[in-house]
Amino acid sequence: MNLKRRSRVLITTCLALTVFLTLGVHSLGQDSLTGEEIMINVDEQQEKISEGDVLSILNFENVNPDGTETGYRFGSLARKEPGEPNYTLIYYLEPEDVAGSIFLSRETEEDTEMWLLLSAFPQPKKLPSSQQQGSFAGSNLTFQEIGSRNMSERYNAELVGEVELTIAGETVPTYVLETEVKEDATAKYPSGKVWVGKNNWLILKSEDYNSDGELARVMEVEELGTFEGKRVTKKLVAESRLDESSTTVTFEKRERPEEEIPVDVFSPDNLTEFDPERWGLTQSS
């Protein structure tokens, strides 16, 4: 073996060792993550996905407690800029009798304000902030969950294990955390269990317990999509365990709008002027 060849082997070996050591350290680092750190990662990942302007179209299919079914189709505009409140505008595309109605939320660190404009009436009505934990559009999701979730701010979390979940045929390794609402926070479900994807920091499954300690709801991601190279939820099912109801949320579209969403779009005073076509929000969209 000549010197040149020997040097190449040495370099390759060193590189390989470096890679292995890096991976090893990384994996050791991962193993040592606490529940709180995992939650922070979840929020950061969520932040990355939702930062800036996002336009989505999503379907809500509800199976009501009495077995009947209802469905809604929404267009959503969201704006999240540093130093500004987080805005979400949800435009009703279907069903026809409520199409054109708009739900608006403005979330600051201190407060969340919500309005509803009914398309048949000229004035938006303010919704009480106490409704944050109420059901959104008759679904098994709360207003709070429709907005940003800020898990690490609201929940204490403890890592209790690691398991693999199968989502649409794909095996996904997860951390299992037990969560409990923080003393100064409010949540519909005071405790629960979440399964966080190790590779995507998405909450892929959760079990929520009510104040009586009963399992009240199970949410599971059934399909994953990709948004700007990051894995995102495409389809999620929230099943109530207290009654027979369930909600399936499907993201039809998630994209950056062609133009920046002006902040005045999110003003309650301008809701009656909202132009859905400008954002491609028509029933056929």
Binding site: D66, T70, E96, S101, L116, K125, Q131, A137
Partner: peptide
Amino acid sequence: NLASQLLLLFSFQGGGLGQLARG
């Protein structure tokens, strides 16, 4: 549609209809 929209508002306010209407 006015009744529909008022009822949408009602449901947004956490109003429950019980046996007054199916889901």
